[in-house]
């Protein structure tokens, strides 16, 4: 009964969001291009929540988030292409498999590297990201379907508004409940002071693994959704700049701030696309001149992130409610 009651609010929110956006899209109020951007923003938000667990909550500096995003994307796309066809159930399974693959790789990478501290962990994960880019680039040598540097085609367009909204809400629920559980408190204590946490009897390595693997799973699921949104994958979609994109979102939103990450994901994606529309033709290449300037100015004015420490009511823990 309690479980059912706790599910009412998310289900209502889901029905409202997915229904209204779908209606607006079907009715032609919002054109398909912007619907696709909205879907992309939701996907990026899922991936960013993942990095927020890793860096914002656990305090593990990761510069290789896009690699896990890519692992999820390629796994899901490969499974769907070879076994799935057009079935919705298979799509769901493929997304979970993408998340699972990202989690498995995160375990393997985390075991040795999570013993490193701060910047060294950042460089090790950055290195892992570059290695994975090289792997994606030459993936057609061992699995021709993956396309390698030419890109992967023939992926079904399965990602729709209901799917992305479902996974976005699910990810928010999981992050919120994780952070406000005893696991979450252990994870936050590691970020605040690892030595003190260890002194209090917390198995820091185990909880770092929990945070890292959970965050990478989010990236994997988001990657699967991304693969079936544009129906085309290219290794350059998962390079160092994509990791930086997500990191920028998490930092702009405020480290460890779920609401901030959510808002910053939408803001960032719509800023990128909006500038394309706003700038006069012939000046579109000024987009990437303006964005870094905005980024630098924001950092100079608000180094703690746009949201600081405030959270939306539905993302607060019970104690504060």
């Amino acid at each position: 009964m309690r479980l059912l009651r706790s599910l009412i609010k998310p289900v209502v929110a889901y029905a409202f969001l997915a229904g209204s956006i779908s209606l607006l899209a079907e009715g032609g109020v919002v054109n398909p291009y912007w619907v696709q951007i909205l879907e992309l923003a939701c996907i990026v938000a899922i991936s960013a929540q993942g990095l927020n667990i890793i860096y914002g909550h656990t305090g593990l500096f990761s510069l290789g988030h896009a690699a896990f995003y890519g692992i999820g994307a390629y796994t899901a796309a490969y499974l769907m292409k070879t076994y799935g066809g057009q079935s919705q159930a298979a799509f769901f399974a493929a997304l979970l498999a993408g998340g699972g693959a990202a989690a498995a790789v995160a375990c393997l990478i985390g075991l040795p590297t999570l013993r490193l501290t701060s910047d060294y962990l950042g460089i090790a994960t950055l290195g892992f990201g570059i290695i994975m880019k090289v792997v994606f680039d030459s993936a057609d040598r061992f699995l021709p379907e993956l396309g390698g540097a030419r890109g992967m085609t023939g992926i079904a367009k399965m990602t729709t508004v209901p799917w992305v909204v479902f996974f976005l809400l699910a990810s928010l629920l999981v992050v919120r409940n994780l952070i406000h559980s005893s696991y979450g408190r252990a994870i936050l204590s590691i970020r605040e002071d690892e030595i003190a946490a260890e002194t209090m009897g917390i198995d820091t390595f185990q909880y770092k693994m929990v945070g890292f693997v959970a965050g990478c799973t989010f990236a994997g699921v988001a990657g699967g959704l991304y693969a079936h949104l544009y129906a085309f994958l290219h290794p350059s979609n998962f390079d160092f700049f994509k990791s930086i994109d997500i990191l920028v979102i998490v930092v702009l939103g405020g480290l460890g701030n779920m609401s901030g990450t959510l808002v910053a994901s939408f803001g960032w994606i719509f800023l990128l696309e909006g500038l394309r529309v706003v700038l006069p033709p012939g000046y579109v290449e000024f987009r990437w001149v303006l964005i870094p300037v905005l980024l630098i100015v924001t950092m100079l004015l608000r180094p703690q992130g746009i949201f600081g420490a405030r959270e939306f009511p539905f993302l607060r823990g019970k104690v504060y409610r």
């Binding site: 990191l247 920028v248 990437w288 001149v289 870094p292 300037v293 980024l295 630098i296 950092m299 100079l300």
Partner: peptide, 10 residues
Amino acid sequence: LITAIGVSLF
């Protein structure tokens, strides 16, 4: 760090 990345992109 983010500022450094911003300067680099700029």
